[in-house]
Amino acid sequence: MKMKAITAFLVFLVILTLPFLVSAVNGDILSQAPQPKLEKAKAPAGVENKCVEEVPYMRANHMNILKTARVQVVRNGLREKYKKYSLENCFTCHRNRAEFCDKCHSYAGVEPGCFGDRGGCHYANTKK
């Protein structure tokens, strides 16, 4: 009876720690997953080859930046101040929408509502 209880407890422990065990055996799975490969953005002539914020920050927070800019422009009319954070401005360097937006978004399973194929209101001024 006591033996049975201990076995059951051990099995429970193994199930509980399964995620840790798997990653201990396999290493970091996330970094092993195939990452989408992006080509580098090229600024057109006359524009500084630099994003509005640092690249890792943009990678994590570009949606918040776009949202803030949208609210400030629509609600407070700060069109000039937030011009550099506008979607239009992104496309001056990130010319290829399929490359820069769609590739990562379809990899992560997130559809950007801005210019998606269903219900997109904004015009993506890029080659597709």
Partner: peptide
Amino acid sequence: TWTNKELPRMMIGVATKCTFCVHRVDK
């Protein structure tokens, strides 16, 4: 209808109204 590409196209399910062409007024 998407004659002016600077502005978004109108999609189903929102109320819209005259904006006094706010994008022009701000300029």
